[in-house]
Amino acid sequence: MAKCAEVVQDILRGMLRERLVDEVVAFGRGLTGSDILPLFITDEQDIDRIVTTSYCPSSLAKLVARYGDRNKKMAIVVRSCDARGLVEIAKRRQVKPENLYLVGIECYGVVREKRGEVYIFADKMEVDGEMMPLDEAALSPNCRRCEYPVPTMADISCRIEPEGDCLVTVNTEKGKAMLATASVPVQDAPPSDVAAIKERAARWQEKDFGDIKRMEPGERLDYWLSQFDRCIKCYGCRDACPICVCKECCLEPDRGLIKGGEYPPETLFHAVRLTHVGESCVNCGQCEAACPMEIPVSKLYHMLSKEVGSIFNYEPGLDIDSLPPVSMVDEEDLLKTGVDFG
């Protein structure tokens, strides 16, 4: 499997060497070689540490927005949810898209709990070098609902084949320049067949959202209240979310909404987060991965974003020029969609 990582490393090494970028952001090997850490790399030597395994413990989009220098040129190894997160962050002017060079990796899901070195493919998975049928239960819940295996928003996208080959597709002009410096030959890949993944996504969305929708309203309310009862207000969901980019946050104590020192916090804590990010959720699943109490928050946000998206015909994270639906106006809209305001 090393071959794919080698191709990605080669592209990034070239970009760093040719000064196309100042810094590379990716996941790589940490303390012992088997553990994984996010890395901000400026030294070509560290490029060797970069991995392309299906274990991505945090949103690189968020890390770039939070710690990156927006005036520096950065290459970021992204999956489609990272790329979509960066698109949303760019809409909120927290990164300069012209400074970002996105090296996309096709992604059919990542594992939440790490069991060895894992690669996920459309219909199989490789664990510590051994190929086996895909166990959907091992995937992070948000990945099962994901319809976007191919990071078309990235400048180039790399497809990892089960045999270890890496096929690269160029999506943008910038992408061409990025590949120009690579020393290994890269060929244009035929488009990936994503029908099976769309089917999987539809199936899991039906299950995850349907379970909630099928409840009576009172039952649904009780369900969420019992989930929120476990909340310890660590702010982990907010801090992991690529959409939450405010420097000052209205959820902090003494801003008139959420009282400090009360645990669990009022249900309003979650409702306010929903009103702020729900419409723009890119289903990266980082909120749920960060939740110490296993509250299925990603399901909640994703569900709202899907529902709101259906009214406004909007899908977050795909197009940098289309603004979040509640932060723009259109005189004619909604008059034709038949929303009932009563």
Binding site: G30, I36, K114, I232, C234, Y235, G236, A290, C291
Partner: peptide, 19 residues
């Protein structure tokens, strides 16, 4: 401070003090 996903106790999660 960020959570450390590889750690067997916290598994990428923290409380407000840790954060």
């Amino acid at each position: 401070t960020r959570p450390w996903s590889e750690h067997p106790v916290s598994e990428g999660k923290l409380c407000i003090k840790g954060y």
